[in-house]
Design a protein around this nucleic acid. Structure first.
Length: 257
DNA sequence: ATGGTGGTCGTACCA
């Protein structure tokens, strides 16, 4: 069973790549972030043509998340994040798939340390911690995926000195991520790879991808009951090399389920 | 050089 997560930076602009990914990788579940469209404009028909069902929490111009599934039972659990700061945005969708919970997130970017958007990110993440602790137990089979907009450690950053203290790597953001990890939720990628140099996002500017100037900010976290069936965790860097790519690459896990 | 690219929308805003 393959679970993938991908910030597509507009489902409309990226539809050909998404359809190609569904055909070539054939994931059981694909979690999308940054749809940048309302539910009514989501390309259900093209995606259903490939045998996928879509659960969508859309929003005009910004944000928006979806869970695509093929060949599994799926039940919507939530599109709402209680205690979210204002304004409420479409950044969460959770489904129950078979006997697992799949929680798909688009964590706020935060803009700049100390800005209003940074404060929004802190409050949103606090609400997320409350949500997970109230709705789930460590014994649950729970997969939390998405664009976390946090590089957990310096080995997840191409140039830690350059990025030191900046948004996406600041101590306060990393402390929030660690509180999530303490649930406990395990960073699937780090169960297999301890080296640096592996990233999921590269800025469109300054030939960042060609120079591998990236950050690992997209994650797939799992609870302990899933650890024994986790077979691998990887980043599909090839997708970032396509014409007109998203600035994020898909991240994936394979589970023996 | 204090920018730089890309998506949305039809302009600034967001990442």
């Amino acid at each position: 069973m393959i679970v993938a997560s991908w910030n597509v930076n507009s489902i409309t602009a990226r539809l050909p790549h998404v359809l190609g990914f569904l055909e070539s990788v054939s994931p059981d579940f694909l979690c999308l972030q940054e749809l940048k469209c309302i539910d009514e404009k989501f390309p259900f028909a093209e995606i259903e043509k490939l045998g996928y069902q879509a659960l969508v929490n859309g929003e005009k111009t910004y944000n928006g998340v979806a869970i695509l599934t093929k060949g599994h039972s799926v039940e919507l659990i939530s599109k709402a994040l209680p205690h979210s700061p204002e304004p409420v945005q479409s950044r969460l969708i959770e489904a129950k798939v078979d006997d697992c919970f799949l929680l798909n997130l688009y964590v706020p970017n935060g803009s700049e340390v100390g800005s209003n958007k940074y404060e929004y990110k802190m409050l949103w993440f606090e609400a997320l911690l409350t949500y997970i602790n109230e709705k789930h137990k460590p014994e649950d089979k729970l997969i939390v995926v998405g664009d976390f907009n946090i590089a957990p450690e310096d080995r997840d950053v191409h140039d830690p000195d350059l990025w030191k203290g900046a948004v996406l790597v600041s101590d306060k953001e990393r402390a929030l991520f660690q509180r999530l990890a303490a649930f406990p939720l395990l960073d699937s990628f780090r169960l297999f790879e301890s080296e640096g140099g592996f990233y999921s996002w590269w800025d469109y500017r300054q030939m960042a991808f060609r120079r591998n100037n990236g950050l690992r900010i997209d994650h797939i976290l799992i609870t302990k009951p899933l650890q024994s069936v986790l077979k691998r965790s990887w980043i599909d860097k090839a997708t970032r090399k396509l014409d007109k790519p998203s600035d994020h690459a898909p991240v994936l896990i394979e589970l023996d389920l």
